[in-house]
Amino acid sequence: MPEAIKGRQHDRQATGPAAATLLEARNIAKCFSHPNGTVTPAIGDIALSLAKGEFVAIVGPSGCGKTTLLRCLCGLLKPDSGTLSYAGKPVSDVPEDVAVVFQEYNRSLFPWLSVRRNVEFGLNKLSKTERRARAEEALTRVHLTDVIEHYPWQLSGGMQQRVAIARAVATQPNLLLMDEPFASVDAQTRIRLETMTASISTELGLATLLITHDIDEAVFLADRVIVLSPRPSSVLAEVVVDIPRPRTELEVKAMPRFQEYRRLIHDLIVAKQSDTPDVVDTPAPDGTEPERSP
């Protein structure tokens, strides 16, 4: 019977395949203050950790600060309090071997660069031939080699997100962060992309942190699912997903276990959700990056 480990994890090592802890966060909190004087707490108190090669999904209700959390974790945003360390060192700016796939591909892929150049973007330090080779390899993984000279905006949404994934993978990162990457894509494409992500992650042994509001996606992809409370968010529970890999979509989603995990997480979220009203995009706060709707 699947169990949710309630509460926070601060004193424990990461569960999952035993390996060095890659990312460790404790007591992360973030508030946004607005020019007119109001203060909006986004994250209350988050603690989590990620081991090498582990696939962790973070699920939570709308508006609970998931995107803010991701941005804090990768170094784009500085949390108000708490400690955050990556590979043992404290995080100040985005570490070299961390890659991010953002939710809105049309606002993160560069429209003035071709697909190839976009994928090569993070590879500036390499020689030209090496860059090309890596880019082609990454694009082969996402099955996009036939549009390599196109511009991203000439492609469909699913293809653009695949370019974004290729861009991330080409840098051969140790940690991959994904912010609701498949939210803006249609349902069928989403399933194909999920399967692709799973296979890439396994093949490369990549530590992955996926933010999503889709519980099915979280259970299908992750080794461990972290459930967040509504804003100001904290970790409600962690659910270890004990389904063997490789996971194929049809098989897994038919398993009763899958349904149980799903139900468990769903109940956890719903139980807490009734107290909080919905939130829209908050305006860009003073001096920090604008909050986008999580």
Binding site: V94, A99, R107, S108, L109, F110, W112, F121, G122
Partner: peptide
């Protein structure tokens, strides 16, 4: 802001890189 974020992730993160490779072309 998405372009800036991407640049911060995929370059060294220094102002000259982000400015020159992402902000100015945009």
């Amino acid at each position: 802001p998405g372009y800036i974020d991407s640049a911060r992730v995929y370059t060294s993160g220094r102002t000259t890189a982000v400015l020159g490779r992402a902000a100015l072309p945009a």
